[in-house]
Nucleic acid binder design. Structure first.
Lengths: 314, 314
DNA sequence: GAAACTCTCTGACTAAGATCAGAGATATGT
DNA sequence: ACATATCTCTGATCTTAGTCAGAGAGTTTC
């Protein structure tokens, strides 16, 4: 039986695992990386040890330091049982690292914050974590460090992009509004003459089932992409308000979103989709072409649109 | 400008750590990666859950499946207390997943292997772990997957290289012999006419303190690089038997080892070092030049050497 | 102002992870 | 052959992690 695909040397022995004819899905590379990286770096966690407090407590302290809040916030963020949290907090409190006081807004809740000593302990956690990262990097030469940083940044971007979840969102929901706000803010920068698009909440039913749909992608709580489908009639759908946060465009999130929206349009019973865009959004125009869209005549009177596209869904 | 160029989120709070004038040491990239990666991928560990056995047990089972061995091996590999290991093994044994029998070579030890049922459970662990990796990759397009794989492979190589430990090793120790064996095997392939270098164990005292030193770098237990320093007399040292496992040469391990050996030579009181090499080892020759070595006349009668170098240590 | 609900806390409990000090068996060096 | 070292196992013990049920304080709804 062959060696484990996770074999320890980098010498290409793992490359042979993918049988000759298969398409590479690269999962082996991911697994190999996971294994060696977690083994060597020991994850973030380890730097939380050795402060004379158990891991869970340190994690909680860290989280409080990142952003103080109510016990409820912390429970949700760390997914803890309320009884367990209560005990952890009491321990931190008795070590004089955190303050716990009733929330004036709702006196059932408690607000949690760091004391001066707690801030100090938090800094220590930060320092350890940074030290660990530095330990990893120091044996390398400057060029190698740069290569490592570039590789990790690239991997980070792609992993983030891969783990973004596209979610059907009501156009009036706060996440949807936040996404569209970011969208219009960006357009506003591009067209200083003043830019005006209809408020998303104006006709929300057009972007809501059963007539349409609106998708928002969030990462770490903030919107990174959005887009909707509405009906134009005659079996034709229209893709609207498609936007991807600038830093995320390199990761192909746009095409993924577009593909998804086409699928939604198909489910809504459309045979084709159209969309319009401004000529200055060159990346977007290129992406539409790559995705199989062809340019057509103006089909609406949107003053900001210069290019009009269509794609057959069958 | 202080923002990371690839930073997809506006979070900013972490980016400001690197003050404007500092040289980038890239620790922020590493930390950022650690945080987001562990958060999203949840490490390898998670795929070990849900088999009806606790994490530690699953980890042990997995390790046995990767490479069966004696209890001692496992204890070292997983860094477990012997009592703890004993109990974990007993549990696996009572579930009929592993066989434990005395090692015929040393009847104090026990050999541990998987039963058929154990192999099946191991396959299940493998499958889960692979599934998790695949889940990560599937949302990406083919090109993005290739980019991710390339980035992770690059990061993996560099991380491995960075975490390799160079250790002063006695020339007669098994790791040293293993390294030199790999070295001569490779040279044997390059020079099919037959290749003969003196056995390392012949004059071990020359490569041993106080006259010399021999360093071996191991990764996951197998040697990946080696090299020694011996005295030539007159304040001159000689670097001998320097070798880096092929797959590791891209990661700059050679220069790191060379730099280290120069430091050792300096500590041994030498003012300069020499070395010889064969002309066909073009990468090596280039590396020596890059490291500040200049070519000199032949200073010995090594029939395999064609190039001779020296470097001043002060 | 009572009912229903929300939130935190306490006590009781369990499993898992981990460490330590020997006992007993086996191997090695002199 | 003896002392010494090595190795695994057992029993005892401890901390951490995590769960559950309900008490008690506070808030919202009608």
């Amino acid at each position: 039986m062959s060696r484990s695909p996770l074999s320890p040397t980098p010498s290409g022995s793992s490359g042979s695992d993918a049988a000759a004819g298969e398409l590479p899905d690269h999962t082996e590379v991911v697994r190999r990386f996971n294994r060696s990286y977690t083994q060597r770096i020991g994850v973030l966690e380890e730097s939380f040890l050795g402060l004379g407090m158990p891991l869970g407590t340190a994690r909680l302290l860290y989280e409080i330091g990142v952003e103080p809040g109510t016990t409820r916030d912390l429970r949700v963020r760390l997914d803890l049982d309320s009884g367990y949290l209560s005990r952890l907090l009491r321990r931190l409190q008795s070590d004089a690292l955190v303050t716990v006081e009733p929330d004036p807004a709702d006196r059932r809740r408690r607000r949690v914050g760091l004391t001066a000593a707690g801030r100090q302990a938090w800094d220590e956690l930060e320092r350890r974590s940074a030290d660990r990262a530095r330990d990893l990097v120091t044996p390398l030469t400057g060029r190698q460090r740069a290569r490592l940083a570039a590789a990790l940044a690239e991997a980070d971007l792609l992993v983030r992009a891969a783990t973004v979840r596209l979610e059907l969102t009501d156009p009036t929901a706060p996440e949807a509004l936040a996404a569209v706000e970011a969208y219009t803010a960006e357009l506003g920068e591009r067209f200083p003459g003043g830019f005006e698009i209809g408020d998303l909440a104006e006709e929300p039913e057009r972007l809501r089932p059963p007539d349409g749909a609106f998708m928002v992608a969030t990462s770490d709580g903030s919107p990174v992409a959005c887009g909707g489908v509405q009906a134009l009639g005659g079996g034709v759908g229209e893709i609207k308000r498609m936007w991807v946060r600038p830093g995320w465009r390199l990761a192909g999130l746009g095409s993924r979103l577009l593909r998804h929206l086409e699928g939604v349009a198909r489910e809504l019973g459309h045979d084709a989709v159209r969309l319009d865009t401004h000529g200055s959004l060159t990346e977007a125009v290129a992406m539409y072409r790559r995705a199989g869209y062809r340019e057509i005549e103006r089909y609406n009177d949107n003053p900001h649109a210069e290019h009009f596209f269509t794609k057959n869904l069958h």
